[in-house]
Design a protein around this nucleic acid. Structure first.
Length: 269
DNA sequence: TCTTTATGGTGAG
DNA sequence: TCACCCTAAAGAT
């Protein structure tokens, strides 16, 4: 999400908006209030995106699984079957949001009481490992399984399903372990992995794998999907470290992948 | 043309 | 934990 926000931010700040288009009827009345306004900032909070205007209003969007931002020359629309849901035009560019179904207009002061935004934990891209350790030590989190915890946006905001599997693999911890089962050094490993894997994924376009290994596999002509991750979406394929088959399971209702050898169910001494 | 799946989130029980 | 909603693409038939 943060990559999309960066792209959007480069396209629209601090430019004056010539026109905003909303596809949803309940938002259409707001459109004219944005004409001639400047965009002060584009902010992310986990997977949520906030576009702040200089009239004290913000547009909140959440892509869920489907939303896609595209930047195009003014009023030049791509050929696609997708539904255009929001467009922000200025003299130089049009920022187009397709397919997203969650779009709201909010006064800036109301952001912190928004029913979803208000529940978000610290954004994994902006914190240090120490902050993750504090979260892990919180009484509400201590006895929950890591597989469930790392998908919960109240624990840490911004971790999606693939990062969950990848972070636990890099930390060498089984998804069914709970923070209370882990020794201090394991928790520190986990906190470092949460921050490092998320940042690498942000900087390197979703590559959570070892960067050198990914580069080599790419050079060998492997398709992108074959070198992105350590374990995610690699069920039954050999672990890149030990060769044992990656296991697929369900945690918190979503598919999770792990290596039974590199991520033992008992916390490593 | 159907069914399934997906980097997400909610609400009922 | 489960069913369900949102939308789109990939896979199965």
């Amino acid at each position: 999400m943060r990559r999309a926000a960066d792209k959007l931010s480069r396209a629209v700040t601090p430019l004056v908006v010539s026109e905003v288009f909303f596809a949803f009827d309940n938002l259409k009345p707001y459109a004219s209030t944005f004409t001639g306004r400047r965009i002060d900032a584009v902010e992310t909070r986990g997977k949520a995106l906030l576009i702040h205007f200089d009239n004290d209003l913000s547009i909140y969007t959440h892509n869920q699984l489907y939303g896609r931002w595209m930047i195009r020359p003014p009023y030049r629309y791509p050929v696609t079957n997708r539904q255009l849901r929001l467009a922000i035009h200025n003299e130089r560019q049009s920022a187009l949001l397709y397919s997203a179904s969650e779009i709201e207009v909010l006064p800036r002061q109301q952001l912190d009481v928004h029913p979803f935004l208000a529940t978000l934990g610290p954004d994994v891209l902006t914190i240090k490992p120490r902050r993750v350790l504090e979260q892990l030590a919180a009484s509400t989190h201590q006895r929950r399984r890591l597989g469930s915890l790392f998908l919960d946006q109240r624990f840490l905001a911004g971790i999606g399903n693939y990062l969950r599997s990848e972070i636990l693999f890099v930390a060498g911890l089984h998804p069914r372990l709970r923070p209370v089962d882990c020794r201090e050094d394991a928790l520190e490993r986990l906190a470092r992995a949460a921050v490092a894997v998320s940042r690498q994924s942000y900087r390197h376009n979703g590559v959570t794998n070892d960067l050198e290994m990914a580069r080599q596999l790419s050079a060998q002509g492997q398709p992108r999907s074959q070198y992105l991750h350590w374990v995610f979406a690699r069920g039954d394929r050999p672990c890149r470290v030990c060769g044992v088959s990656i296991v697929q399971d369900v945690a918190a209702g979503r598919r999770i992948y792990f290596c039974p050898t590199c991520q033992p169910e008992r916390c490593r001494p």
